[in-house]
Lab assay of single mutants.
Amino acid sequence: MAAGGDHGSPDSYRSPLASRYASPEMCFVFSDRYKFRTWRQLWLWLAEAEQTLGLPITDEQIQEMKSNLENIDFKMAAEEEKRLRHDVMAHVHTFGHCCPKAAGIIHLGATSCYVGDNTDLIILRNALDLLLPKLARVISRLADFAKERASLPTLGFTHFQPAQLTTVGKRCCLWIQDLCMDLQNLKRVRDDLRFRGVKGTTGTQASFLQLFEGDDHKVEQLDKMVTEKAGFKRAFIITGQTYTRKVDIEVLSVLASLGASVHKICTDIRLLANLKEMEEPFEKQQIGSSAMPYKRNPMRSERCCSLARHLMTLVMDPLQTASVQWFERTLDDSANRRICLAEAFLTADTILNTLQNISEGLVVYPKVIERRIRQELPFMATENIIMAMVKAGGSRQDCHEKIRVLSQQAASVVKQEGGDNDLIERIQVDAYFSPIHSQLDHLLDPSSFTGRASQQVQRFLEEEVYPLLKPYESVMKVKAELCL
């Protein structure tokens, strides 16, 4: 049975990233139509530049190519590739079939990587351009969430054990800070992308030097003109047959890092959902379990974690691919890159769409948070109580021993009897502590235990987050809708 299948058929496997999760716009960027249309555009740009620099290419040939950029006979191309065992030459023939007058000058002087690699770089750039505003929107939604809850005390956790208090907004800023680093890295790697350009079979530009009869300047002009037509500021000066596969490492490393950030955020949300302090959106008709109707599973956060793990592992592909590119190139890269580049971007696209949807509907339960604080705060307040007693004339050592005994009794009630923490009640009825009984409410005010959390939130948002989001103001209103 021949390899390949009808990918629109229910009898043929289709990647869930495309069929179930990723956005239509990201799927289109990695589609065959987008790819092969870009090949034709690159052939047109090459012909236009070659004509401008004096090669015998007519206006009629150029116009014929322009008129057929979208006229792609995919069936013919597939048949040609089956016959020739070469995808680029299959599309040269297919393009030439609908451009008979231009057929002889299509791909003039070029090698397969002229269309293959340059198209990949265009796709990487455009895919990054799709991700950047999506990530900015996630940051914006979380920034709104953090600002609104900047002063809401909550129990902090280290080692997932109760620690000092923080605020809900401050905790959210930990998430935002990681995503801001990801946004900066995505922008950097996007701006650092260079075009492969017009380089020939081993990167020496020998074929173009021959076409222009040894004119170095025209060869350099050709490279520059096509690079500018493709919208790049610069091209690699040095290439082998391909652009260095280190570029793929750079791009997928940034995406993998984004995956790590999203995994951490969504894990926190899942843990908070278990504590009943916070939940992701839950639709009115949504079913959490087929057997347990009360369940409210954090399905979206779980999906993000599941896909983020996949995204983090994909960076190993370009690392290994770059390491086995012998001399000017081997074909070890080809099949692998067809999979890992598309999957990385479709996965990143999915987790950003999902995280935006989550961040637009996060639900906080202040009463649950308050109750958990009441359970733990008495123990945390013991040092403040000791200091207040010393100020009232008591002995630190005597007070410490009193607190120690009462704390152990209260802990026994919590752990052995399943009761509430009654340390404060014990202190309130103990005559030894009568000098500070009137101060206990103040000493137990949760806001006095959150330090500068709310001020940190305000400063972080104003100095770091809002300036970073400013270039994306025009796209901030787009909502994230999930079908599944």
Rank of each mutant, 00 (worst) to 15 (best):
F236D: 05
A260E: 02
I436A: 05
T204M: 02
S447E: 11
K170E: 04
K470C: 09
S438N: 14
A480D: 03
L352E: 02
E228A: 11
S31G: 08
V413G: 15
A3I: 03
A411Y: 12
R338L: 02
M225P: 04
Q221W: 08
E50D: 09
E425I: 02
T167G: 00
R141L: 12
I62Y: 01
S290Q: 09
A77W: 14
D120F: 07
I139L: 08
E462Q: 14
A335F: 00
V324T: 12
Q456F: 12
E60N: 07
Q241P: 03
A348T: 03
W175I: 00
F212K: 04
R234Y: 12
I386G: 11
G104N: 04
A410G: 08
T38M: 05
D32H: 04
K147C: 03
W39A: 13
K35P: 10
R196E: 03
R245Y: 07
F236H: 02
A335L: 11
S438L: 00
Q320G: 05
E279D: 15
L179T: 09
D120W: 11
G361T: 11
D398P: 09
R40L: 10
E228R: 14
I105P: 15
T347Q: 00
S306W: 08
G116P: 05
A410T: 08
S434P: 05
T58C: 04
L258M: 11
H7A: 10
A480T: 01
F208H: 06
I57G: 02
E464D: 01
L46S: 07
E463Q: 12
I249D: 15
V115I: 07
H217D: 04
I105H: 05
R329E: 04
L130G: 04
I62Q: 05
Q41D: 15
Y466D: 14
E280W: 10
E220C: 06
L331F: 14
Y432D: 15
D398C: 14
T158P: 10
A291Q: 07
R452L: 06
K170P: 07
Q177P: 02
E283P: 07
L406T: 09
T330K: 03
G231C: 04
V405L: 15
N118Y: 02
Q221A: 03
V92P: 04
T201I: 07
F282T: 12
S434L: 12
K170N: 12
F95N: 07
A110E: 02
C304I: 02
V363Q: 00
Q397Y: 14
Q409W: 06
L440Y: 12
A22C: 06
L258R: 08
K170A: 02
N357P: 15
V247S: 03
L183I: 12
R303Q: 14
L130Q: 05
F208G: 08
L355M: 06
V465M: 01
A235K: 09
M387P: 13
V390E: 15
Q161W: 02
E48M: 08
I105K: 09
K264R: 10
T313I: 08
E50K: 01
G214M: 13
M380D: 00
Q184N: 03
V390S: 01
L128M: 12
L183M: 03
K415S: 13
R149I: 01
I269N: 03
F208T: 03
D216N: 08
R14S: 12
D6I: 03
Y466A: 13
K367Y: 06
L222Q: 15
E50V: 02
L461P: 00
M292L: 10
Q61N: 15
F433G: 03
I122R: 09
C98F: 08
A344H: 07
H97S: 03
G451V: 10
L314R: 12
I369L: 04
R452W: 04
D349Q: 01
A348V: 08
Q221D: 13
T354Q: 14
A322I: 00
T227M: 07
R83N: 07
M292I: 09
I122D: 04
N126S: 11
R426M: 00
E79N: 13
V198I: 12
D182P: 11
N384P: 09
Y365Q: 09
H93Q: 12
L121A: 03
P56L: 12
P293Y: 12
L352S: 07
K82N: 09
